[in-house]
Write a protein that binds this DNA or RNA. Structure first.
Lengths: 119, 119
DNA sequence: TTTATATATGATCACTTGTTCATATGTTAA
DNA sequence: TTAACATATGAACAAGTGATCATATATAAA
């Protein structure tokens, strides 16, 4: 069936649609929201975030821990910084990364809970 | 710098690494977890999930609401079903979709909160 | 200043992903 | 049965993503 832009049926529940429409975040925020959640959609980043939820770690520690290259790790940390998930402090040559706030931990825990319940 | 597999420095914090290592989810669960979180990383799916957190909706309603084709909607709903985020009941020709559990709503709310705080 | 090292970044490429088009399936009414 | 419609699915393609390689920057020690 080709898309005609709308349904050709009396089964469209217009009132419900109108009511629901109000709850949808503004278009401008949707992209930020998606970018934020994208960070959790990669196994490497999940490991990074979970690790940082336990302790701050330097780039070198993280590469060692995940067994990925320093370059790959640095790239990942950059994207995590860009969406405000992690912050870092510099101590000489070393950059210590940590979580920016508690949201990450909360989300990870809910996700883990979800997976466990689905078994 | 080429990756040599590990850091050539005394700045590796081995004890911290060992402690943190235990908290990382098992490899087998990491993929499920990533697939679960990936669902939140797309603006169309965020809209779908947010809408369903308010009310159950049929495929037709959802296409109308998001202004995307019925086909695209059906594909999205399929992937959402595969990771146990939504369920549906059939009433004649109509398929009414709804959230499978409360985790989705919780995660969306935390995400929205995160975005708002980052401003 | 020169060397070593910790981290960052740009370019590239294989792989993934979301949409579209075309078509199939399933259900109801005529 | 036939027509209409609600939903599902397969193939294909453009756009996005994560890792790698090469290289750059920054800091500390010699």
């Amino acid at each position: 069936m080709l898309n005609t832009g709308d349904c050709q049926t009396h089964f469209v529940h217009q009132k419900t649609i109108d009511r629901v429409k109000e709850s949808i975040p503004k278009e401008e925020n949707l992209y930020d929201l998606a970018d934020f959640f994208k960070m959790f959609g990669d196994t490497s980043r999940i490991k990074i975030l979970k690790a940082l939820s336990i302790s701050e770690l330097c780039v070198c520690d993280l590469s060692e821990l995940l067994n990925i290259s320093q370059s790959a790790m640095s790239h990942q940390l950059r994207t995590l910084r860009q969406v405000n998930l992690v912050k870092f402090r510099k101590q000489g040559k070393i950059a210590f990364y940590s979580l920016k706030d508690d949201h990450v931990k909360q989300i990870l825990d809910i996700g883990i809970q979800h997976i466990e319940e689905a078994l």
